[in-house]
């Protein structure tokens, strides 16, 4: 069980890192307003925070510090989304990843780590697997960066994107949306099944622990 949790934590950290890298390569909007300099400053500041804290996640071996760095990275990427007028994406990034997932990761770390074991133990084959993932990701990102023709049209900041996204989710993309919810439901039930021990009720167990 602890093994699985460690994998979940690692997968979360890695995918968030990938998301960070992905988000950070968004181009600066060609702003024609008078606050171009301010936007540029904000962009570079937030990109720097995202990249540096991503790097810190790699360097630090302390999981709770990793979580805090991840929070900084996610916040900075959310800031980039806000800068690009993708308000909904930024808010969801903050609410789902920064507010929800991070707490779950921390919760997992706190419940599973024993004194002295809060450092990640990486075995040989895990290093190889991680290396393969890293190299693939790096090559893929470089290819995206090099092969894309960056559009320089003005960012079309629609006044409200929430309604448009909602409508699209419930009309054109209804089936993927429902499939995703079914997947989440399956995961929830699976998690509940996995942690359940026979002949024990959950409430008493919680009372013992806290």
């Amino acid at each position: 069980m602890r093994h699985a949790l460690r994998w979940i934590v690692m997968a979360g950290v890695w995918s968030a890192l990938a998301g960070t890298a992905w988000g950070a390569e968004a181009p600066v909007p060609p702003a024609e307003s008078s606050s171009t300099i301010l936007e540029a400053i904000a962009f570079y500041a937030m990109a720097a925070v995202a990249l540096l804290s991503g790097l810190a996640i790699l360097v630090s071996r302390n999981l709770v510090r990793n979580v805090v760095c991840l929070l900084a990275a996610l916040g900075a990427v959310a800031g980039l989304y806000f800068l690009l007028a993708a308000n909904l994406l930024g808010a969801i990034q903050l609410i789902v990843y920064a507010g929800g997932t991070l707490v779950l990761i921390t919760f997992g770390v706190m419940l599973t780590s024993r004194p002295g074991s809060d450092r990640q133990l990486v075995r040989g084959w895990e290093r190889i697997a991680g290396g393969v993932v890293c190299v693939t990701l790096f090559i893929g990102l470089c290819m995206v960066l090099l092969c894309t023709e960056w559009a320089t049209v003005a960012a079309s900041a629609e006044p409200t994107t929430v309604a448009a996204v909602g409508r699209a989710l419930l009309t054109d993309y209804l089936v993927p949306f429902e499939l995703a919810s079914v997947l989440l439901l399956v995961m929830l039930i699976g998690a509940a099944y996995l942690v359940r021990r026979d002949g024990e009720s959950g409430a008493e167990d919680d009372a013992d622990r806290c």
């Binding site: 929070l71 308000n87 909904l88 006044p159 409200t160």
Partner: peptide, 16 residues
Amino acid sequence: DVALLFVLAMLGIEVI
């Protein structure tokens, strides 16, 4: 336009 989500997100981050 996402003010409510934003405020909720901020309240959630406080927990960390």
